[in-house]
Amino acid sequence: MLEGKVKWFNSEKGFGFIEVEGQDDVFVHFSAIQGEGFKTLEEGQAVSFEIVEGNRGPQAANVTKEA
């Protein structure tokens, strides 16, 4: 699992990017966010995740919000 911070997330469109120190930003789709209820992320929020190869390159999977 990697750790990063949410760079930005558009809850209307359901996607955004996660910043990872020393690496390129990683695309995140709302469907990759773990948990119940409305799936969104806040700018600057700490998250842990895995990287998988998507249709358009690397993207986040199994995203969990850090306490």
Rank of each mutant, 00 (worst) to 15 (best):
L2M: 12
G22V: 04
V63Y: 00
W8V: 04
K13Y: 09
F9D: 00
A46E: 08
A60S: 05
F15V: 08
K39S: 06
G16Y: 01
G35P: 03
A60F: 01
K7Q: 03
E12K: 14
R56M: 12
E19A: 14
L41N: 01
G14C: 03
G37M: 06
P58W: 11
D24W: 10
Q59K: 08
N62C: 04
G4Q: 01
E42L: 12
A32Q: 10
V26A: 03
F49A: 02
N10F: 07
G22D: 07
R56H: 14
N10Y: 07
H29Q: 03
E43C: 06
E50W: 10
G16H: 00
F9P: 00
Q34W: 10
E50Y: 13
E36L: 08
R56Y: 15
N55Q: 13
G35S: 09
E42W: 12
K7H: 08
T64K: 15
G16D: 00
E19M: 12
W8Y: 09
D24M: 13
G54N: 08
V28C: 04
S11E: 11
V6Y: 00
F27T: 02
K39L: 11
V26Q: 02
G16W: 02
G4M: 01
Q23M: 12
G57H: 05
V20R: 12
I51V: 13
S31H: 11
N62Q: 10
V63L: 10
K7E: 02
F49D: 00
F30D: 03
E66T: 15
F17A: 04
H29S: 04
V28R: 00
I18C: 02
E42H: 14
Q45S: 10
L41K: 00
V52D: 06
F30R: 14
F17P: 00
V52W: 09
T64Q: 15
N10A: 08
N10V: 06
E53I: 14
Q34L: 13
N55K: 12
I33G: 02
E50C: 04
D25G: 04
K7I: 07
G22H: 09
D25L: 07
V26I: 11
H29V: 03
K65E: 07
F9W: 13
A60G: 05
S48K: 15
G4Y: 01
F27W: 07
G54C: 04
E3R: 15
G54M: 08
V20G: 04
L2H: 12
Q34F: 11
A61P: 01
V63P: 01
Q59M: 11
F38E: 08
G4D: 00
N55S: 14
E12T: 14
D25P: 09
K5T: 07
F30T: 06
N10K: 08
F27Y: 08
F38M: 08
A46T: 14
S11R: 15
V20K: 07
A60N: 01
E50F: 12
V28W: 02
S48C: 05
D24F: 10
E43L: 14
M1G: 10
A67K: 14
F27Q: 02
V26M: 06
V28N: 00
E43H: 15
A46F: 13
L41M: 07
N55T: 13
M1C: 05
G57E: 03
F9H: 01
T64H: 14
V63D: 01
L2V: 12
K39H: 07
G54L: 09
K5R: 10
G35K: 06
E43T: 14
G57Q: 05
F15S: 03
P58C: 04
F38I: 10
T64I: 11
I18V: 05
V28Y: 03
W8S: 04
E36T: 11
S48E: 09
A67S: 12
A32S: 12
A60H: 01
Q34D: 12
P58N: 09
G16Q: 00
G22T: 06
S48W: 13
F49I: 04
E53C: 05
F38N: 08
E21Q: 14
V28D: 00
V63Q: 00
I51A: 04
W8T: 03
A61G: 08
F15H: 09
E12F: 12
T64R: 15
V52C: 04
V52R: 10
P58K: 12
G4K: 01
V47S: 01
E3K: 15
D24I: 11
E19Y: 13
G54Y: 08
F15M: 10
A61H: 12
I18Q: 00
E53A: 10
E53Q: 13
G22W: 07
I33V: 09
K5S: 05
G35H: 10
G16L: 01
E42F: 15
S31W: 09
G44M: 06
L2G: 10
I51H: 04
A61W: 10
T64N: 13
G57V: 04
V20L: 14
A67E: 10
A60P: 01
L2I: 15
E53H: 11
E12N: 15
F17R: 03
Q34Y: 09
F38A: 07
V52Q: 11
E3A: 15
P58S: 08
V63I: 07
N10R: 08
F15A: 03
T40S: 12
H29R: 04
S48T: 11
K7V: 06
N62P: 02
G4L: 01
E53V: 10
E12P: 07
G57T: 04
P58F: 11
E50V: 08
Q34C: 05
V20D: 02
F17S: 03
E43Y: 13
K65G: 09
V6M: 04
K39G: 06
K7S: 04
E50K: 08
E19F: 13
G44Y: 06
I51M: 10
G35N: 09
E36H: 10
K5E: 05
F38T: 08
D25F: 04
D24K: 12
F49G: 02
